[in-house]
Design a protein around this nucleic acid. Sequence first.
DNA 1: ATTTGGTTTAACCATTTGGTCAAATTTAAA
DNA 2: TTTAAATTTGACCAAATGGTTAAACCAAAT
Lengths: 210, 210
Amino acid sequence: MVSIKEGNSPDTETLILEAARKVFIRKGYDGARMQEIADEAGINKALLHYYFRSKEKLFDQIFLAAFKDFWPSIKSELEQGDGSVKCLIRAGVNAYTDMLMKTPYLPAFVVSEINRSPERMEGLLQASGVDAAFVMAVVQRGIDRGEVLPMDPRSLLINMLGLVLFPFISRPVLSRLFFDSEEAFMSFVGQRRQEVYAFMCRAVLHSSAL
Amino acid sequence: MVSIKEGNSPDTETLILEAARKVFIRKGYDGARMQEIADEAGINKALLHYYFRSKEKLFDQIFLAAFKDFWPSIKSELEQGDGSVKCLIRAGVNAYTDMLMKTPYLPAFVVSEINRSPERMEGLLQASGVDAAFVMAVVQRGIDRGEVLPMDPRSLLINMLGLVLFPFISRPVLSRLFFDSEEAFMSFVGQRRQEVYAFMCRAVLHSSAL
DNA sequence: ATTTGGTTTAACCATTTGGTCAAATTTAAA
DNA sequence: TTTAAATTTGACCAAATGGTTAAACCAAAT
């Protein structure tokens, strides 16, 4: 028996999780090797199975956490605002920009793995508790009040997600095509916060609400 | 010797290429199996190596073609216009929408594989002859003429690419999150052509140029 | 009919890979 | 200190996988 609850050594377990996260993000599920994860964690390969039974079980745990991080919470900033779509856009852009500066590789990982096996989506949405109903309602209200130009609320949200996420998902392409170095690209995306906010406002807000 | 030039049976070779394309797009490089490609083509596995030496060589050929398709030509439609950014936006949105309706899975494939091994980008850009200089110049001219709001030309192009490509790259996520069925989602993206065009114009054009 | 050279196949190979297991080691309770 | 349980490891295994090869096949030229 161990003093830490539940009989698992958290040191080793988190060591494995961190190593697995790195390797899975770098190589994807199919490209990742259990041996590489063990090496990255500096432990014996058998320990991976001791703590997580199988590669797929280990991946599931990593990926569910990644999927949750993929949807940063905007509620805290949103509640400080006046409930307008303008505030929703600001909160959304801010929350995603923060997330992306911390984990720029995450969206490409999530998107790649979901395209590899889309059937996971069902369970993922349920397990992560992600739900668009609330933000959809905010946008719909903005349209009804005349703050926002008449449009499908889903368009507004998808466009905002696209503007914020796309540069990170396509980083290797864009960075080579439009920039001299990876650093120049990262500095560019770092300045996008205000730019995307203004871009979105011009595109969807009634001129009176600008 | 065979009557067809160069001594290769084009039937079998294209059969392999088509099968490989399907499997690589479905499973990615790491997830694809040579046996599965052979089965898909209805031929013996050894033939794959007879015609393409190795899995990597076969993949390279498929992927270079996919990468070229990823950058549809906008020159033809562009030359019919007046050289304005408005026309550039229309031409870009049209060319990409056409490409995406034909091969909706292509962007996710290209992006995933490039993220898996970004070092390919160098050679890919060279081999595909993709170059942003021309469209960059068009945008810069639009800014100088006052047609477009002052902004980094790269922002305009990246935002347009993001708006058009993102829904397809994230299809499984968005379709589950915002739509009742895959069909509903596809019908939605089918109507995005005008929507994205108008969205872009509102966001970047001087009000006098709308 | 025979030869010739590209094409196709089944059988086979070496290596990799996820996974298992029994023994060794560590930890902490008795 | 002894003991019992959890942890860690090296050795090992079966299956899968990319790749090879020698033989068979086949169309066309002689």
